[in-house]
Design a protein around this nucleic acid. Structure first.
Lengths: 123, 123
DNA sequence: CTCAATACTTACCAAAAGGTAACTACTTGC
DNA sequence: GCAAGTAGTTACCTTTTGGTAAGTATTGAG
């Protein structure tokens, strides 16, 4: 009892705890660009994530009230994931981050000079 | 050789790899609100982080070119951390995220009703 | 009677991350 | 010559996380 400081002191820490971590913001960003995505579609869009981890991230986002899970008991079953109203409030932040990402990416390619032709040649 | 797909396909993944992870965005946000912060100040602002992890995060941010490390060989030595120009480009995104965090925090407190008085009483 | 398809869950093991305590450097003050 | 103070580093150990493979449910197709 009587902790030395209030853990909820800072709302920033709280929101970061909900959306940070490997893959989580990337999942939110993918969902913010589509009406909804099925589990298999998300899995295909993020080739390096395993089903176990993807499930875990989605469950946590669901528990935070940022993602909605729509289970359709068809055969075989299909599950649609989409952002809740609250989750959609992250759209602008994620778009802003993507803009910065695109800018940095362009700057880095320019400075290195190479990349484009080499990458295509390697395929 | 010849991987099936280019890992740098998506700039979003790249930026997330640089700024995501436990404490990292929080450190950036703290630095974006001050000219600079010393190691000990950061440590005090984030009570639950250990020196080892804080050092690790700062070194990685430095390697990414987002944070500048200014070592002053005084006795005892002092080290000032600040955002680089590139790091400062995250300011708007972080402020946007903080706005959302504050809004959610206010909404959650309202719905729960309690919190404020109880929290203060517990101190 | 078995396979395929979707969206998982579970068990088990390996790898990564993090905590803690001790140690470093250097000079001033006692 | 010992402690204090800043900003670490290092070694060691524990905890957490993640990968992989197998199993679950249901039903239509072959």
């Amino acid at each position: 009892m009587a902790p030395t400081h209030n853990p909820n002191q800072c709302p920033m820490e709280s929101i970061l705890g909900q959306i940070m971590g490997p893959w989580t913001p990337y999942i939110l960003w993918l969902l913010s660009n589509e009406e909804s995505l099925r589990f298999g579609q998300l899995s295909a869009l993020i080739p390096d994530i395993s089903a176990k981890v993807l499930t875990d991230r989605l469950r946590k986002l669901e528990a935070s009230g940022l993602v909605h899970r729509d289970y359709q008991p068809t055969v075989p079953p299909t599950v649609y994931y989409s952002l809740t109203e609250r989750g959609a409030e992250l759209h602008d932040v994620l778009q802003g981050l993507n803009k910065v990402a695109l800018r940095w990416d362009a700057e880095d390619r320019e400075k290195q000079g190479k990349s484009d032709s080499e990458v295509i040649a390697a395929e």
